[in-house]
Amino acid sequence: MSLFNVLDVSSSALQAQSIRLNTVASNIANADAVSSSAEEAYRSRQPVFSTVMRDAFNDSVAGVRVSEVVTTDAAPVRQFSPEHPMSDEDGYVYYSNVNAVAEMANMISASRSYQNSVEAMKTARQLLMQTLNIGR
């Protein structure tokens, strides 16, 4: 794998982790969203990563991408609160199924993966610069 391929792989990882961070931010922003029905309640979303192959004949890896962002199947939290303006006819409100602690852990993981990709790009750049300096 050439150093230019390292830059390509790291670049795709940066894009994928950026989408992951945006998805986590959206989940955290909607963690306390309230709805009057289970169908309308916000459900957390998670990105699905897939490998991108550059050449199908020799399976050379070209990076990673987000193939889709899926909505989780977990049920929203149902809470009895008849005085709430969004309560249904039975007095229940529905909160999103976002687990704020899990989302914070996911955010830390995505942030560190992003930082690792930046470091890989910096290292590849330094090696390329040193290679150019050898030729002088």
Rank of each mutant, 00 (worst) to 15 (best):
D73N: 14
T131R: 00
V118W: 02
A100L: 15
S111F: 14
P76I: 10
D73W: 05
F57L: 14
F80W: 13
T71F: 03
S113Y: 08
E119D: 12
N97T: 15
E68V: 13
L3P: 05
D73P: 01
D8Q: 10
M1L: 08
V34L: 04
M104H: 10
K122N: 13
L127K: 05
A124Y: 08
A25N: 06
V93Y: 01
S60I: 15
D8M: 11
S109E: 15
D88N: 15
Y42G: 04
E39I: 10
S2W: 01
Y42K: 06
N22D: 14
S36C: 02
S11N: 12
A31W: 01
S113I: 03
A29S: 15
N58P: 11
Q79S: 12
D55T: 15
S44H: 00
V70R: 07
Q126F: 05
N116I: 14
E89N: 11
F57G: 11
S10A: 15
A25E: 08
D73G: 15
N58I: 15
S67Q: 12
M1P: 07
S87R: 05
S96N: 04
N22L: 03
I134D: 01
N27S: 12
Q46C: 04
M129Q: 12
N5I: 08
Q115D: 12
F80V: 05
N5D: 08
D88A: 09
S12L: 05
S18E: 08
S109M: 11
V69W: 03
A31T: 13
I108H: 03
V61Q: 04
E103T: 02
V98C: 06
D55Q: 08
Q17W: 09
T23Q: 01
A56W: 00
S36G: 14
S26I: 10
V70D: 00
M107Q: 11
V52F: 04
M104I: 07
D88M: 08
V69E: 02
E103K: 01
A29D: 07
V70T: 13
N30S: 12
N97E: 09
S50G: 11
V101D: 00
E103L: 03
A41C: 09
M121C: 06
G91M: 04
E119P: 04
S50W: 06
S37V: 07
S10N: 08
R65V: 06
L132F: 10
F80L: 08
N30F: 05
L14C: 05
T131F: 03
I28P: 01
F49H: 02
R125K: 12
E39V: 13
A74E: 14
A31P: 07
V93P: 04
